[in-house]
């Protein structure tokens, strides 16, 4: 069992993921708002990312998806490998590419992704954590 925890950012729960750039294989870290209200369990995406990041990581295109709520209109989905090193997690995910992630964050970790883990503050009100 592994746990990764992150301090709240702007008073909100976040996770950090590692992306690999297609050019040069450089690793970059992105902070995603952990949002259980983002999408449903059976929606076709795990995370929301800036579309520029999706393309820089060599994301493989998939279908467009219509969004409602914080985002409207249809948006492209990409398949992107991501990692959370402190959890020993590495997998390919479906990322919705948007023009503007939420202010102060690099994207959103949606419910479908969070629900892969045990998640919460585990008793520390100033942190959010994922546990395998």
């Amino acid at each position: 069992m592994a746990r990764a925890q992150w301090p709240l950012q702007h008073g909100r729960p976040i996770i950090e993921i590692v992306l690999t750039l297609a050019q040069g294989a450089q690793k970059v870290t992105r902070r995603l708002l952990a949002d259980t209200g983002a999408g449903a369990m059976h929606d076709p995406f795990d995370i929301v990312l800036d579309e520029v990041d999706c393309l820089m990581c060599g994301g493989k295109p998939s279908k467009m998806v219509p969004l409602g709520g914080s985002y409207s209109g249809t948006h492209p989905i990409y398949v992107i490998p991501i990692g959370i090193p402190s959890l020993g997690f590495r997998d390919s995910l479906f990322a919705v590419g948007v023009a503007a992630p939420p202010a102060g964050f690099d994207g959103i970790a949606c419910f479908r992704f969070l629900n892969r883990f045990t998640y919460g503050n585990f008793g520390n009100a100033n942190e959010f954590a994922l546990e395998t």
């Binding site: 076709p44 995406f45 994301g59 295109p61 998939s62 219509p66 969004l67 409602g68 709520g69 939420p102």
Partner: peptide, 23 residues
């Protein structure tokens, strides 16, 4: 070249609106 590739889940309904509740 990833731009020359595509991934699809044929059994999925891609017309369904997915809600990302307002932040």
């Amino acid at each position: 070249d990833p731009s020359r590739t595509f991934v699809v889940e044929p059994g999925r309904d891609y017309t369904k609106v997915c809600e990302i509740w307002r932040i």
